[in-house]
Design a protein around this nucleic acid. Structure first.
Lengths: 189, 189
DNA sequence: GGAATCATGTAAGTAGTTACATGATTGA
DNA sequence: TCAATCATGTAACTACTTACATGATTCC
């Protein structure tokens, strides 16, 4: 019954459950795995690994190959695996309130010309199309790399949500652009 | 050419552009306006109002009605209005990386039984359905309250995005539940 | 030889929430 | 009279990012 630990620890436990890794490896792995819904910087990772080692959740193995920099590889201990499973079973906390600068500017868009909002939405459309392309590329890549991995379906679930929301956002951009044109037309006459 | 100020300041400038308000009023107004994509706590609002007053972006009017607590009402100055318009025109920064505890647990869902993930997704579905209902109720409410307000279309844009992404999320939940059932079925045999 | 990248870490700063503190007013 | 809510604010804490510091290795 310890107090709730940070989710950084839980994310690292999860990643180390795939296979043992160094802090650097973890950072490199993130973009191609949990990167589209979770981020960790070195400033979080290294101190967390230290704390987790002290708590006995992970074990550190230092290897000195001649002509190579010292490498610190961490692997889950039994305690770590237990902790991960326990955390996975707890219903996730309510999502932290989002903050969208785009929507904030759009909400107050009436204070400036409609063409300002139009430009912002067009940028968002381009951005979201790229994001969608990345999701689809990632999906193909992990399907090709781990075709028989039992975890694959779970990895795809998370990518699917990205795909769904990206498509919805793109639709909204298109609709909103039309509306903004109508607005500008009314103003212009 | 000052350094970029925090978005809290910009959000408050925007809200005060609707009409003059106290810090308390601002906090109360948020849930029914920008609350679905932006949040501010008292711990942010009061210090920000103080700084903004010092910078001349807003003006404070203190009113002492007998039998009422002192009231500090803030209104935009010309400088504030100019600053708001300038900020609105700048393309919004790339969205901060999201962090979804649900997706994190789902990604590592293979470490525990499929029924664990199923329960999480079902919770998410219920949550999202409520969220969608709130968007739709808010939409009706502001349409009824401000039918001819020129800012109304902009307010609706932001709600529309919420509606679009909520619906996409709900679809994803339903699909994922089906997939999880298939997975559990395969395991179970 | 020099740039990129592998690799590990720390320090400082920013942004934000939560809890606390205070006190008046209103309504059941 | 007691709870809710109006109203303003501060202090402590947490989380996180960025920049810095260091040094080895690999590839051109």
């Amino acid at each position: 019954m310890e107090g709730k630990q940070s989710n950084t620890v839980n994310a690292l436990l999860g990643l180390l459950s795939i296979h043992p890794m160094s802090g650097y490896d973890i950072r490199q792995l993130i973009p191609g795995s949990i990167g589209h819904f979770w981020s960790e910087s070195y400033g979080q990772i290294y101190p967390a690994l230290k704390r987790m080692t002290a708590e006995g959740l992970i074990a550190k193995k230092t290897s000195r190959t001649k002509g190579k920099p010292v490498r610190h590889e961490y692997s889950l201990t039994e305690a770590g695996r237990t902790r991960l499973a326990a955390w996975l079973k707890v219903p996730p906390a309510a999502p932290a309130p989002v903050r969208s600068e785009l929507l904030l500017k759009l909400f107050f868009g009436g204070q400036v010309g409609a063409e300002v909002s139009r430009a912002h939405v067009e940028d968002a459309l381009a951005f979201e199309q790229k994001t969608l392309a990345v999701y689809e590329a990632t999906e193909r890549a992990i399907k090709a790399a781990h075709p028989h991995n039992p975890h694959l379906p779970f990895w795809l679930f998370t990518l699917n949500l990205g795909r769904h929301t990206s498509k919805a956002t793109i639709e909204w951009c298109v609709e909103t652009l039309k509306e903004l044109d109508r607005l500008a037309g009314i103003d212009g006459q």
